[in-house]
């Protein structure tokens, strides 16, 4: 059960830590790196609260060990907003559309949706497409409709003709 050295880039900053191999990436980010915006809702890969982006892809950080992220670039909700300030268009859209209530699932939705929008790169998303895209995340407060609206609005903001 010897410790391992892990070096990861999180939101552009490099972190080097000694960790037990069994340390979950979610716990590593929250308690070793101190970025508590990534939440833990189930630790069995269903709820999606812990979704972060590893080398661009949205993944469940509760289903990865920190040692597996050695050398990876990780983006968490804290790193989504532009460095010059303000919020990311997705975050703006969630606020505008009331796409969050308690906010616990929100970082996971935002990170999953950001990966989806980056992949789609288009403004004309349908409700059905968005519902499918966010269907790996549970929300107990909103009933999802405003989240769907938020993702569509963000797509329009980011990729719509202006």
């Amino acid at each position: 059960m010897s410790s391992r050295n892990v070096t990861v880039t999180v939101n552009g900053s490099t972190f080097e830590r000694e960790v037990e191999p069994r340390l979950l990436l979610s716990d590593f980010l929250r308690h070793d790196v101190g970025l508590t915006g990534t939440h833990v809702g189930c630790e069995h890969g269903v709820c999606g609260c812990c979704t972060v982006r590893v080398d661009g892809e949205a993944v469940r950080s509760c289903l990865m060990f920190a040692v597996q992220a050695d050398g990876a670039e990780i983006l968490t909700v804290e790193g989504l907003a532009p460095a010059e300030g303000g919020m990311h268009p997705l975050q703006e859209a969630f606020k505008e559309c009331h796409g969050l209530q308690c906010g616990f699932c929100t970082p996971g939705f935002v990170m999953a949706a950001s990966a989806y929008l980056d992949e789609q790169q288009r403004a004309d998303l349908t409700d059905e497409e968005v519902r499918e895209a966010i269907s790996g995340n549970l929300c107990r407060c909103t009933g999802y409709q405003n989240i769907v609206e938020a993702v569509k609005l963000a797509a329009k903001t980011m990729y719509g003709a202006s």
């Binding site: 508590t36 833990v40 009331h98």
Partner: peptide, 23 residues
Amino acid sequence: KPIRRNEDERLLTGLGSYVDDIS
């Protein structure tokens, strides 16, 4: 009025303080 929420910005940027987030 449907005023946008005061709590949203911190919750959206990962700066909420849930119990497990307290250092």
